[in-house]
């Protein structure tokens, strides 16, 4: 029968334990180097030292598998998160540039209308490839082309990113909309640019 003794009720026991704990005896730091055989001789039970070490190795393997799985899942999750952020940022940036072009063009060119703002997305390179379908007289088209050049130069100077932009004027012309749609499949809505 096990009897529980509260140390505070047995002052002499407390003193002996304190002596052990504060003396130079510190088992977990200074255990002597024993041979496998001598360690095996220190205990008896359902398993010997080899059996225990096999169990420990098994447990380590299980933990390793769990860690690998967890690490893999975490890596995949991190990659998904990073890819999602990158795609979102890329799309927003394109919308921002389109918004900027709309704003500058509409501020600077009278009675000017952009019919379509189309894009080809390249998520791997983040290349920015835009096509603006416009309906403009020659003079307005020249002004719009100048706006595009200035924005291209400005984005390159400030962001070190290349934008490829073309304008396709539908005034008095027949456009091949199917090729245009195939080359620039996305219609981009301009981000709201505050002055």
């Amino acid at each position: 029968m096990v009897s529980y003794v509260h140390l505070e009720h047995v002052p002499y026991m407390e003193n002996r334990l304190e002596k052990y704990l504060t003396s130079e005896i510190n088992l977990f730091e200074k255990s002597p180097a024993l041979t496998h055989k001598s360690l095996d001789a220190l205990f008896d039970g359902p398993k010997n030292l080899s059996g225990i070490l096999t169990d420990v190795a098994e447990e380590i393997k299980n933990r390793e598998k769990k860690a690998e799985k967890k690490g893999y899942e975490r890596a995949v999750s991190d990659m998904n998160k990073a890819a999602k952020e990158r795609v979102e940022k890329y799309i927003y940036n394109i919308s921002f540039i389109v918004g900027l072009i709309h704003k500058v063009a509409l501020d600077e060119i009278k009675n000017f209308k952009i019919i379509d703002s189309r894009a080809r997305f390249s998520f791997d390179t983040e290349w920015i490839d835009l096509a603006f379908v416009i309906d403009a007289e020659f003079e307005e088209e020249i002004l719009f082309s100048s706006v595009l050049s200035r924005i291209q130069n400005s984005v390159f100077s400030n962001q070190k990113r290349i934008i490829e932009i073309i304008q396709v004027n539908q005034k008095n012309r027949e456009l091949d909309h199917s090729v245009l749609k195939s080359d620039y499949p996305f219609i981009v809505k301009p981000a709201d640019i505050k002055s």
Binding site: I165, Q167, V168, V179, L180
Partner: peptide, 16 residues
């Protein structure tokens, strides 16, 4: 740049 854009347009999107 203007001519680059026009030539791309002429080659692929606008024939007349």
């Amino acid at each position: 740049n203007y001519l680059y854009s026009k030539s791309k347009s002429a080659r692929y999107y606008c024939y007349k």
